[in-house]
Computed example of a mutant assay.
Amino acid sequence: MSALADHRIDRISTRKLHDHYPRTVGRNARLGSHGSGGTYTVTVVHTDQGASGWGIALGDVDPCQPLVGRRVEDVFDPALGVTEPTAMPLDLALHDLAGRLLDQPVYAMLGAAGSTTVPCYDAAIYFDDLDPDDDPRGLDAVLANCAADHALGHRAFKLKIGRGNRWMAAADGVARDIEVTRAVRAAYPDARILVDANDGYPAERFVDYLEAVADCGLYWIEEPFPETHEDLRRLRGDLKRLGSTALIADGEARPDIPLLLDLAAGGLLDVLLMDVVSYGFTAWRQVMPEVVAAGVAASPHAWGQPLKSLYAAHIAAGLGNVAVVEGVPGHTTGVEPASYHLVEGSIELSSAPGFGVELSPHEGAHE
């Protein structure tokens, strides 16, 4: 019998973990301050032989309790992921458990199609120039944040843009977006620069920003406006006219897979961004062949928890076809020091079984 057949689910418990960012993360084009961290639930799947695996919960885990007594192989296939729909909230925990039972890292279980040194960008450069309201810190705040994250090991920066959508007059917002982009490029001439508008630009006005930063060598443009064929064709034409090789990335806000794959197959998108947790690890395994067939790359959205960057890196190392992963600076209370590291702009994964991270004993436990 296989290792997964030898183990039955004995208990499903939950824990609360808390993330701490290095600083308060400010606004983006649509939302206010993102705070300095947050509390969330992870699930732990225990087997009758004393093994366990854990991961961020994908929704309510109470409906999973009837799975107690089932063999692990009844709900999870190492070649596919979760096979029992009621077990989907345990998606990440079951991947971790299976890796531990098979004594292999998750990326190896996925096929080890990519490198275990995974390029990673800094995703924590928000509108901190606008804070506080009564005495905005200005451009120096953005540059200080880049410097702090560079010291942590980041070598690529994703800049939030779209200040004119909510926080500044439209023209002033575009001007500040341009100023920030050019300043970061000047400070880091060799860095990859990505920009993300969170759908905060009018489609017909985005060209104003593009023209002003045409010499900045943007690596990618993320969700500049709600995606449509017409608007993305215009954007693609503008990029070609300006001689830009910037990739167009989309799919975080509205993971409409048929639409995204259609846009990708039509040459209008280059990178798909569905979230690594809310869309799901098993779902990413299922959709990746279609992403490859459409001729585009992936980069599972990971903002929010540092652990999500680890999950995205395992997809990159396991399935391949990932351009770069999203990095969330910070640490997690309740997790032992991780067996992966950020070095010179890349996450270096270890060969530890499962996802390679351990929960601290007892801290945050909740049955």
Rank of each mutant, 00 (worst) to 15 (best):
D135S: 12
D177C: 11
D129H: 10
A171H: 08
D128I: 01
V142F: 01
D177S: 05
A183S: 09
M168I: 03
A171E: 13
M168K: 04
V180R: 01
V180T: 10
G164S: 04
D129V: 00
R182Q: 12
L159H: 07
D190Q: 15
V184C: 09
E179R: 12
A175Y: 04
P189Q: 13
A175Q: 13
I161Q: 06
I125V: 14
A171K: 10
D190K: 15
R185W: 11
R166D: 01
F157C: 08
R182N: 06
R166Y: 09
A147I: 13
L130M: 07
Y188K: 04
A148L: 09
D129L: 04
D135Q: 14
H150C: 02
L143V: 03
P132D: 14
F157T: 03
P136A: 09
I125G: 01
R137L: 13
R155A: 12
A151W: 07
A123Q: 10
N145D: 11
V142D: 01
G173C: 04
Y188G: 04
A156V: 05
A171R: 12
A123N: 08
T181Q: 07
G138M: 05
C146N: 01
A124N: 04
R176L: 11
I125F: 01
P136S: 12
W167D: 11
L143E: 12
K158D: 02
L139H: 05
A144T: 13
G153L: 14
A183V: 08
A156R: 10
I178Y: 02
H150S: 11
L130T: 03
G173A: 08
D134S: 03
R176T: 05
D134F: 15
T181S: 12
A156W: 03
D134R: 10
I178V: 15
G162P: 15
P189V: 08
Y188Q: 08
R185K: 14
A187I: 13
P132N: 11
R185C: 13
I161H: 08
G153R: 10
D134Q: 08
A183W: 14
Y188S: 03
L152C: 06
E179V: 02
R176Q: 14
D131W: 09
R176E: 08
A123K: 02
D135P: 00
R155W: 10
M168Q: 14
R166W: 03
A186Q: 13
L159G: 05
R176V: 06
H150F: 11
D149I: 00
K158G: 03
P189C: 11
D131V: 00
K160L: 02
D190S: 14
A171S: 13
A124P: 07
G173F: 00
A141R: 04
H154D: 12
F157M: 09
H154A: 12
Y126W: 13
A123C: 07
N145K: 07
V174R: 14
R166P: 14
P189T: 11
A191Q: 12
H150I: 00
R185G: 13
K160D: 07
P136C: 12
R137I: 09
V142H: 00
